[in-house]
Amino acid sequence: MASPSKEMLLDWYRQMVLIREFEETCHRLYEEKRITGVYMHLYSGHEASGVGSMAALRPSDHVITAYRDHGIALILGMDPGAVMAEMMGKKTGSSGGKGGSMHLASAEHNFWGGYAIVGGHLPLAAGIALEARYRGSDDVTMTYVGDGATNNGYFHESLNMSSIWDLPVVWIIENNGYGMGTEVDRASGQIELHRKAEAYGIKSFGRVNGQDALEVYDIATQAVDYARNHGPVVVEHVTYRYRGHGVSDKQYDAREDMSAELREWMECREPIKILRDQILKKHKGVKATLASHEEEARRIVKAAVEFAEASELPKSYQELFQNTYVNSNLVHKTDMSVGAGSD
């Protein structure tokens, strides 16, 4: 079993409390209408899934996910200020305000983005991995996909292609129990989702407790190693969404039995607490460091909000049209004259 150093564990803790603070702040800002829009899907509850698995990567590896992407962006080290500014649609946002919550990305971090069409990013993941295979590099593409998305054709076509071409993809199914309001067993004939790998001759590393960063990391190191040297693998993380499907889909969290279920997860399977207990059990004299990470997370997120709120919104036609094409000065306005955009 891979055994991460004390420094690594403390750094995971830092990442996890930062994500939680960021997400809970986003939630509050949305309620206060300081973040607007209709789509924002939070990673609270999922932290160990992302942190533990991405700890198995090296910087040249690739990462891609769906719309529940804030946590992934922060783990990769994207600037929280730029991410928060993106939530507010500001010019200083990581996607210049064009993408919003569902479309974070960072070329610099090999983060190929968050995508809003369920399953739509999965063939892209295979394509990114194809580039590595094509050039003879052994970089892997870590790909996050929801339980609900595994019922979409995109998932099956992408897995199959990754198999026949031996593409170095780590397919991580983040099984949080629901796709919007639909339980896994009402949507999928195979409820052990990782077993969908079998249909395509792909190696499965089985089902992992996605709330336990150490267990996630242990399997992820093996999975990444396998993908680097052989081809695609599937891992299923069993996790839970603390803030329901998304900020504007409240109906999916309002049910009575779901709130009891949520409480149970928060009390018994809380990823930050699990990691904290593991650290304290193993290492002495770290309480002050843990506390300073919590303090630091609050400071960073507060500064991110201040930065984002002080930033400007894009307002011009030029900004609207910019980057439609590599050479955007050929865009058309409605009146069919040549538009105002340019790069």
């Binding site: 993106e86 649609g89 919003g100 307002k315 049209f321 306005k333 538009g339």
Partner: peptide
């Protein structure tokens, strides 16, 4: 009169 010939951005004013 139609939408502008551009993908829709997130940011509200544009």
């Amino acid at each position: 009169v139609a939408a502008e010939d551009v993908p829709l951005p997130y940011s509200k004013e544009i």
